[in-house]
Design a protein around this nucleic acid. Structure first.
Lengths: 347, 347
DNA sequence: ATGAAAGCGCTAACAG
DNA sequence: CTGTTAGCGCTTTCAT
């Protein structure tokens, strides 16, 4: 059981020799193409079996006219993030139906790393890509796209033309969340968000502003904290907010890790039953916490399905106008978002 | 911006023509091999840049003597499961350092699907594989291995010889968990586990038995529920257990989704502060629940790192004896596992 | 330091 | 129905 010990992988030539036919005939049999007599087919199959022959897609795709690698690239921010993982799985399921495998990578929201991974995928001649664009410039993505690589952006739209995308109702849903809180009587609603270089963060912030405006509330900059990367930053920021003179009576946390950090800060102060909270992105066990956490849930399977459909359509030659699909998120009422403000307005 | 519109990918020949050198020289420059004058190198680089040339790994790997695809396959049960996702990420990080990309797939614990995916990977001539073996027969894995494909099994060991594996201290840690509960005075400790076709489930069950034995407790078969696939089955089973005449005073849930189901059942009956619970596998927010959930935490980064190290060593030609690494899991005390049994022994 | 010829494993294009 | 020839884009081998 040595790795690659001695034996050489059998090739079509070996099979052809054993079956006493030409390699072309073997090729036909292996690929289920017509033009091979039933008896020959059987002989070839038999030979392939005894030799343990397996087709070499590398060679095949090099020679074939369509040049397909039957592989797509998936570049997300962090494959271990539940959102990204669920999205990957959704794409994978659809790829499987097309007989396509997925090369997956985490760009860590680092444009340089994303560029590298992009190049790696290109070098492997993937048939298409599903990309969660890193913040900042999308030059590398654009260049790749301009070379003709079928590409769909998910979660964040392209900053350049001619490319499909699938996103969520970030702005509208955020606005709805704020209106939901305002409708419960809240007047001091804080915003806690991820890095503003991310399109989603900006959209959600804009939705927050729209919500305030619609509700007739004035923006208080001191209740806005952005660029919170990770739970720890979010916890610190939330703590600072809560310890203020006039603390917020409700929080809108615009990303799942931010929500986690905010919850920790609330718990620490035993305020989780007194300060309202709505988070963007659902997460496992949100319903098991006390109170249950009200969230905006993205339809991840739909996002993945749509993205996959779009790449595969492009791969199959679809030249129609770029599509920018927007999948609605849903507000899930679980309790934390329904906490009313304190009667006296203070807390 | 048509997909593959008109333009053809430039090849080495194109670059060679433009730089007025042979393709061999281009090859040398592109691969940073010696034997090209500094002036020629510059001319070739320039030509490659203006043409937008990118090497074709497919062609290169076909011709190259080492035949490397700079790609490994990762076959897990479900890439959207947090455990699998974290593991994938750990493997990915290490692969990146080797300049290797990851082809990822979910086998859904279905041997047939696993066989298919395995074949897909083989057809693409991956350099190695990291596999979470599906329950049941491992013939397909074994055959693949016997062909010489470098392979490491994670989470579950091989049922055949000659293959590396990385697993967790399933049995010992489970025993410790039971002893922990018994040490708090529990005498009716239930076991709730996933499908018994899974090696991990069996190991954890064995550990449970050992724990009972060490604590001088007798096994009560009516407190054992196995083959719970998913949270719903676990919830139903737990509910049935709790509604018994002599219900358990403590639960040991042997898988993360089972833990979730059990927690739901406990909540429904408002027993989460009265019945002790220890779960195998940590999960996000386990500390935020009330009570915090005591768990056995696997060292996922270590599992992934070790697995990656092993495949890459084999890929690099390591012929030493197979390694079966075992990474210790840790009991994290958070409250639910420290609930004492009711004083009167009933509840 | 550079290049010409051969060929990796397979399929396209054509011939028989 | 079956085979022959050529060649995908690259690297090997060997020559210069």
């Amino acid at each position: 059981m040595d790795p690659r010990g001695g034996r050489r992988e059998p090739t079509m030539r070996d099979v052809a020799a054993l079956a006493r036919v030409s390699t072309k005939t073997v090729s036909r049999v292996i690929n289920d193409l017509p033009g091979a007599g039933p008896e020959v087919v059987e002989r070839v199959r038999e030979a392939a079996r005894t030799l343990g022959y397996r087709p070499n897609l590398t060679a095949s795709s090099l020679r074939r006219s369509d040049r397909r690698s039957a592989t797509i690239g998936v570049l997300f921010e962090d494959l271990s993030n539940p959102f990204d993982a669920a999205l990957l799985r959704a794409v994978e399921d659809h790829a499987r139906r097309h007989g396509v495998l997925v090369l997956a990578g985490s760009s860590e929201d680092d444009p340089a790393l994303q560029r590298e991974l992009l190049a790696s995928l290109a070098t492997r001649r993937v048939d298409g890509m599903v990309v969660m664009a890193a913040g900042g410039h999308q030059d590398a993505l654009q260049r790749e796209r301009e070379r003709g690589t079928p590409m769909v952006l998910v979660d964040r739209p392209p900053t350049f033309d001619g490319t499909d995308s699938v996103t969520t109702t970030n702005r509208d849903s955020s606005r709805d969340a704020v209106l939901h809180l305002a409708g419960r009587g809240h007047r001091r609603i804080a915003f806690l968000g991820d890095r503003q270089t991310l399109w989603t963060s900006c959209e959600r912030y804009t939705g927050y502003l729209e919500g305030l405006a619609h509700a007739g509330l004035t923006l208080r900059e001191d209740l806005v904290r952005t660029d919170l990367h990770g739970p720890d930053a979010a916890e610190t920021a939330t703590a600072a907010l809560l310890d203020r003179h006039e603390p917020p009576t409700a929080l809108f946390t615009a990303q799942n890790l931010v929500t986690v950090g905010a919850m920790r800060a609330l718990r620490d102060r035993d305020l989780h039953h007194r300060v309202a909270l709505i988070g963007f992105d659902d997460f496992p066990l949100a319903d098991m916490l006390q109170p249950g956490v009200t969230v905006l849930r993205q339809d991840v399977p739909a996002l993945g399905r749509r993205a996959a459909e779009l790449v595969f359509a492009r791969i199959d030659g679809d030249r129609s106008e770029p599509t920018h699909a927007v999948i609605p998120a849903t507000l899930i009422h679980r309790g934390s978002g329904e906490i009313p403000p304190p009667a006296d307005g203070t807390r």
